[in-house]
Simulated assay, not measured.
Amino acid sequence: MGLFKKKGGTQVSFHTTSTIRPALAVLRVLDLQECLRFYQEVIGLKVLSETEESAELGVESNEPLLRLVQLQGGEERKETAGLYHVAFLVPSRENLADVFMHLLTTGYPLQGASHHEVSEAVYLSDPEGNGIEIYADTPSENWVWRNGQVQMTTKALNAENLLSQKTKSKWEGLPSGTVIGHIHLSVNNLEKAEAFYSALGFQTVSQYADAALFLSHGGYHHHIGINIWNSEGASPAGKKSSGLDYLSIFYPSEKNRREAIYALEELGIALEERKDGIFASDHSGITVQLIIEEKDEENGNI
């Protein structure tokens, strides 16, 4: 399952099983039921599984995009490193128009709506302040690349033009094919964060002043964003703080994952093998899970 863009008569994939990409965001929340209502009614995700303490949501029955975990005795996240936003990528501009119309109809407050040359996006946050972007890519053949860097700008979204593309009178939730397009993180040291996410297998493809970097795999405009806009020198969020618990990074094969593990070890990053996978944390205390879809028989397990 994935999204495709036409380029030069061939299919170029940015979010399939051949791409290193963010696949799941796990959030610690203070009020599970309130957040569940929001992600279903406002965002349009579906509950795939649920217990008293957690829930998984997505649009496809076999691929959760978001996991919410009830935080017992926790506290609201302060000005710390962690999630800036999780970005849900819809398959088409028409899908984004339907989402935008729905959000306007609900009256839920938006925090922005932008055109970035490579994408069009709307921004909001959940009831506990976790940032959310919902976006659609522009055609990849129109992206401007110079010396390995993609041109991204921020200008106002042409809302009237976008809404002219809406297709549905009744909201039915986020469409099939929606994926986590990228994860944007607030980090406390840009240079150390760049080294960490580069070791995971992403390449820096864009820079915004001296405060934000964007990294990708396979020629995408970005799978990972990192910034120090409000978090330079900030302390890592503790496990009793609401917000991002960890994010899962998908690897096409055990070989790809092993390369990332070796690169992390070269940086002196400690790895933890748990029953549900291999985990590592960056300098800002942001934890990632390194996952593969299935065992690579040639290379075996770590």
Rank of each mutant, 00 (worst) to 15 (best):
N256M: 13
V90D: 01
Y208F: 11
A211I: 15
F38Y: 07
Q11R: 14
N188A: 08
I224T: 08
I43V: 15
Y246M: 03
A237V: 07
A212R: 02
I20S: 07
V118W: 03
L96C: 08
Y39N: 08
H222S: 07
S140P: 03
D296W: 11
S281C: 06
E133H: 10
F279W: 01
A23P: 00
Q151P: 00
E254Q: 13
L89T: 02
P139N: 11
T138L: 11
G218W: 04
H115M: 04
V144S: 12
L71Y: 00
V26T: 13
D276W: 03
A234Q: 07
S54H: 04
V12C: 04
L71S: 03
F14W: 05
G238M: 13
L174C: 01
E52V: 13
E76T: 14
G177C: 03
G233V: 09
H115Q: 12
A113K: 09
C35H: 14
V69G: 10
E266N: 14
W143P: 12
S61H: 12
D126S: 01
H222W: 00
G44Y: 04
D276E: 10
L104A: 14
G82A: 02
H184E: 11
P22C: 08
S140I: 15
D137T: 01
L162G: 09
M1L: 00
G82P: 09
N95F: 02
S164C: 04
Q203I: 04
V69L: 13
L27G: 11
R258Q: 15
L163A: 08
E56Q: 14
G2C: 06
L65R: 03
G173C: 09
E41D: 14
S61Q: 09
A211T: 14
T16M: 02
K295N: 11
T178K: 07
S92N: 06
L190P: 01
V90R: 02
H222L: 08
S253A: 07
V47E: 01
I132D: 06
H15M: 06
Q289I: 07
I226H: 05
F4G: 10
S198I: 02
L48C: 10
L185N: 06
P252L: 10
N147Q: 14
N230Y: 06
V90H: 04
N230D: 15
N299W: 07
I249L: 10
K46A: 10
R77N: 10
E266K: 15
S61C: 00
G44V: 09
L174Y: 04
T154R: 05
E34Y: 07
S241G: 01
Y135F: 15
D282M: 06
E294N: 13
A136S: 15
R21H: 03
